[in-house]
Amino acid sequence: MTRPRFHLAFAVDDLPAARQFYGDLLGCREGRSSETWVDFDFFDHQIVAHLAPQECGSVNTGAVDGKQVPVRHFGLLLDWADWEALAGRLREAGQDFIIEPYVRFAGEAGEQGTFFVRDPAGNALEFKTFRDEAHVFAG
């Protein structure tokens, strides 16, 4: 059986900027595209950036572990070494973090490394990692 993958469509206000962020910075291979959308291979999942400037810019947040986390966001769970490497690559590229890489819920079930960034259209992305994958859904 093939491993399930997610498909996510989201709004951007500038396709060349989306191509630079997702393609050049994050290393996502580009798939099909048109003048109004582009598919990316987001770490083996399909995401589609649709040109819809009027839908960009939501900044609502909610409190999690003493930080203001963007309510609307998507992202990935990575292996710890891959998470650290991505955080390092983003720092080297001068990417601003909404929330800098840190360990959340330290010493508790669900302990995780996490960080948040925004793409050029303002979409929030979270990248996280767990020392113990059995704790991904720990309560």
Results as ranks from 00 to 15, higher is better:
residue 81 A to F: 01
residue 15 L to V: 13
residue 77 L to C: 09
residue 25 L to Y: 03
residue 86 L to A: 06
residue 76 L to Q: 12
residue 116 F to G: 00
residue 45 H to L: 05
residue 77 L to H: 13
residue 60 N to C: 10
residue 119 D to L: 07
residue 42 F to W: 07
residue 78 L to P: 07
residue 90 L to C: 02
residue 88 G to N: 10
residue 73 H to P: 01
residue 98 I to W: 09
residue 79 D to H: 04
residue 50 H to Q: 11
residue 86 L to C: 09
residue 38 V to Q: 15
residue 80 W to Q: 11
residue 38 V to T: 15
residue 110 G to M: 00
residue 35 E to D: 15
residue 113 G to W: 08
residue 30 E to H: 04
residue 40 F to W: 02
residue 117 V to K: 04
residue 65 D to F: 04
residue 37 W to E: 09
residue 64 V to G: 00
residue 92 E to C: 01
residue 21 F to K: 08
residue 97 F to V: 10
residue 18 A to S: 14
residue 82 D to Q: 10
residue 12 V to T: 15
residue 72 R to N: 13
residue 58 S to R: 15
residue 56 C to S: 10
residue 62 G to E: 12
residue 8 L to Q: 11
residue 52 A to G: 07
residue 93 A to K: 03
residue 38 V to D: 11
residue 93 A to H: 08
residue 119 D to I: 10
residue 87 A to V: 08
residue 118 R to Q: 15
residue 55 E to C: 12
residue 80 W to N: 05
residue 79 D to P: 06
residue 73 H to D: 04
residue 40 F to K: 00
residue 34 S to Q: 11
residue 16 P to Q: 10
residue 46 Q to I: 13
residue 89 R to V: 02
residue 40 F to M: 05
residue 59 V to K: 12
residue 114 T to G: 13
residue 38 V to N: 05
residue 69 V to E: 01
residue 100 E to C: 08
residue 43 F to W: 04
residue 66 G to Y: 02
residue 88 G to D: 13
residue 55 E to V: 09
residue 93 A to C: 03
residue 118 R to N: 15
residue 15 L to I: 13
residue 119 D to N: 08
residue 69 V to S: 00
residue 11 A to D: 12
residue 113 G to E: 10
residue 27 G to Y: 05
residue 74 F to E: 14
residue 46 Q to M: 15
residue 89 R to G: 00
residue 105 F to D: 14
residue 25 L to C: 06
residue 80 W to F: 11
residue 9 A to P: 03
residue 100 E to N: 11
residue 100 E to G: 06
residue 59 V to R: 14
residue 41 D to Y: 00
residue 68 Q to M: 12
residue 34 S to A: 15
residue 87 A to F: 00
residue 58 S to Y: 12
residue 83 W to N: 03
residue 32 R to A: 14
residue 76 L to G: 03
residue 80 W to R: 13
residue 39 D to W: 07
residue 93 A to Q: 09
residue 66 G to N: 03
residue 41 D to V: 01
residue 98 I to G: 06
residue 87 A to S: 07
residue 27 G to C: 03
residue 61 T to F: 01
residue 35 E to K: 12
residue 91 R to K: 14
residue 27 G to S: 06
residue 15 L to W: 08
